[in-house]
Amino acid sequence: MNLPKVIADLVAAQDNYDSAAYAKCFSETAVVVDEGKAYSGRNEIRQWTAEANEKYRTAMKPISLSENGPTSVLTAEISGSFPGSPAVLDFHFELKDGLIHSLRIIN
């Protein structure tokens, strides 16, 4: 599957549990919404993913990607040490200038 570079970088960062590299995929003012909570800016995004990595050791396996202009939806199998693992989730990205400006994770 041919993923946009920033999404491929995000998947690689997640699979390496590298929260700093994960956060660098986002713009300074990006917003992530996951499980009803919003995380704003690279610092909050880095902290959120670092805590999730420590707790769940989550890995991503891309299944499909649909693109419509700056909007991309990645469907991925997520596995880790969380109840219900593995799970298939949709990652709704808004991309601009090679970075992620927003991400909504929906199950």
Rank of each mutant, 00 (worst) to 15 (best):
M1L: 13
N2F: 06
K5T: 13
K5S: 11
K5I: 11
K5G: 09
V6M: 06
I7R: 00
A8G: 03
D9H: 05
A12L: 11
A12T: 02
A13T: 13
Q14H: 09
Q14L: 00
Q14E: 14
Y17G: 11
Y17P: 00
Y17N: 13
D18C: 12
A23D: 07
A23P: 06
K24V: 04
C25T: 09
E28I: 07
T29F: 06
A30F: 12
A30Y: 01
V31F: 08
V31K: 05
V31W: 06
D34N: 14
E35N: 15
K37C: 07
Y39R: 04
S40K: 13
G41D: 07
N43W: 11
I45H: 01
R46S: 00
Q47T: 10
Q47I: 13
T49I: 08
T49E: 04
A50C: 09
A52V: 15
A52W: 08
N53F: 13
K55T: 12
K55H: 08
Y56P: 08
R57T: 00
T58I: 05
T58C: 08
A59D: 00
K61P: 02
I63T: 15
I63M: 14
S64C: 05
L65P: 07
S66K: 12
E67G: 14
G69H: 15
S72P: 06
S72D: 05
V73L: 05
V73K: 05
T75W: 02
E77I: 00
E77Y: 09
I78Q: 13
G80K: 12
S81L: 14
F82W: 10
F82P: 01
P83A: 15
P83Y: 01
P86D: 09
P86H: 05
A87Y: 06
D90A: 10
D90N: 07
H92E: 14
H92K: 09
F93Y: 14
F93C: 02
E94Y: 10
L95E: 03
K96S: 11
G98I: 03
I100K: 00
I100D: 03
I100Y: 05
H101K: 15
H101I: 09
H101G: 07
S102F: 07
S102E: 02
I105E: 02
I106H: 00
N107M: 13
N107Y: 04
N107R: 02
N107Q: 02
